[in-house]
Each structure stands twice: as C-alpha cells, then as structure tokens.
C-alpha cells in the first residue's frame, strides 16, 4: 500500500497541549509540512511566543527558543545576524504580536528582516483565559469585556496585515484562514511562498492565520470554524496584501 497522507516528521510525537479543535494544531502542522517538503527542518530555527503556543517547541521538530512576551521578532533578528543562511521564523499569537509586541513586529518589518512571522489571530487571549485582545471583534465577548467589546471603551480591532502592508520592506503579507480543506491548502501555499521569499532574501514575510479558539469563545469546534468564516473573515479579509516576484 502507498501512503497518501501521513503525519509530518516536522511534528514530534508529543501530544499537543492545545484544546480540542484549536487551530494551533493545523497551523503547526502545515508550517512543519512546508519545512519538511523543502528539506529545511535541519536548517530551521524558530522562536515561540508567550501564550498557548509557548509550548510549540515541544511539538515542532526543529531547533527553537522561547521568547519574552512580544519580543520574538527582536529575538529572530538576533538569530538572523548570527545565521544569515538559516531559515528563521517566529510563531506568535495576537496578544503577543498585536498588543505587547506591536513595536517589535513593526520594526522587524520596517528593517526588512529576512525571517518569516506566522501570526495566529484568534481574536482573544487564550492562555490567560479569554481576555480581550487588540484583535477582538466589536461585540465579541471576553472576560474583560463581558457584554462584548465596544468602540467607545476599546477602539476598533487592529488589522495587522493592513498595517504591515504599508511598510515597504514587508514584501510578502498574506492573510489566510484554517476553516476548510481548500483554505488549509491555500494557507499552505502562502507559507511556501513566504519561505521562498525569505530564502531569496527579499525582505520581511508575514502570514496571518485566522484561527479558532473554541474554548474561550464558548463554541463547539465546528461552530468555531464557522464563526471564523462568517464573523472574522468579514472584518479581516482573507487575501494577499503584498507579494514580490522571484
């Protein structure tokens, strides 16, 4: 018999610490599949964030380090200075990247740092238990916005791709979602493209994954995916914002 689909060697055999139906698992898998397909697992160095995905280094089968909260892009910039020929990436959630780490991601993009950032946007703080994030939608409930986020109190949700796409050296910026098999295939193509551009040393590359957090949203996993498609994608359009010809 012939293998059609098998778990990637880019993932360790360790069971993930994520809740049932959490999109982190899908994002992890496709990033690691891409590295495996490129034969790049052995020359990849990753930086994990603070948040649920701090545990990613137990699951991603590459050399990795943990980060202080939000500073993964600065850490990756440091790694890049020592290892200009390696494939470097950060993996960050929306609290980590869009709130406390907003300065570091903007300046990594602005310098055209030659690494790739994978941004998991699930519109909430997961690990700390469902507090409002900069990306929480208007009306969306959170433990620090129990009646739903309001514009008056917390402003509008931050669109990170749109912001980074205004920066010249952010040469690849794409938002994808992990809500059905076709979208997952499309997400994987975006990951490959970002890594192609990183390896061509064209500039900073960024992929945002609209992701589900069933536990903190209070939805069943399948319903959470529908919520991503209906609500999140309405505010955060799934598209390529910037790319470069190779």
């Amino acid at each position: 018999m012939k293998t059609v689909f098998a778990p990637t060697s880019g993932m360790t055999p360790v069971d993930t610490s994520y809740c049932p139906g959490c999109s982190h698992g899908i994002a992890h898998r496709i990033i690691m599949e891409c590295l495996e397909e490129r034969g790049a697992l052995g020359r990849a160095i990753g930086v994990v964030p603070i948040g649920c995905a701090i545990n990613a280094h137990h699951f991603m089968n590459v050399d990795m380090c943990e980060s202080t909260h939000g500073r993964a892009p600065a850490i990756a910039a440091g790694i890049r200075r020592v290892h200009p020929d390696k494939l470097v990436f950060t993996y960050q959630g929306d609290g980590d990247l869009a709130s406390i780490g907003a300065a570091e991601i903007v300046h990594a993009a602005h310098r055209g740092e030659k690494f790739t950032t994978f941004f998991i946007n699930n519109a909430i703080y997961g690990m700390t238990g469902g507090q409002m994030a900069p990306t929480t939608l208007i009306g969306q409930r959170a433990t620090t916005a129990v009646d739903g986020r309001t514009v008056e109190q917390a402003g509008m949700p931050l669109r990170v791709c749109e912001m980074l796409a205004t920066i010249d050296m952010a040469v690849f910026v794409e938002r994808v979602m992990l809500t059905n098999p076709a979208q997952v295939r499309r997400a994987k193509a975006a990951v490959h493209k970002a890594l192609d551009i990183q390896e061509a040393r064209k500039g900073f590359t960024f992929v945002e994954f609209l992701s589900a957090c069933p536990t903190n949203w209070g939805y069943a996993p399948v319903d959470a995916l529908k919520w991503v498609e209906e609500k999140m994608a309405a505010y955060y359009p799934v598209k390529n914002f910037r790319t470069v010809e190779l």
Binding site: M1, K2, T3, V4, F5, A6, P7, T8, M11, D15, T16, Y18, P20, G21, C22, S23, H24, G25, I26, R29, N180, P181, V184, R185
Partner: peptide
C-alpha cells in the same frame, strides 16, 4: 475516497491515509 479532507483539518496529526494495492 481518499480525499484527505479529514487529515487536512485534523489539528492533532491523528490521521494517516493509505492507497491499497490490488489484492490488499
């Protein structure tokens, strides 16, 4: 039908799919 939809969506790398040869 071996479409891989399940495997692509599995968040926990639980699924493997094999195509069977004749006689298997």
């Amino acid at each position: 039908i071996g479409c891989q939809s399940c495997a692509l969506m599995c968040p926990d790398c639980c699924i493997s799919i094999y195509e069977l040869e004749e006689g298997e």
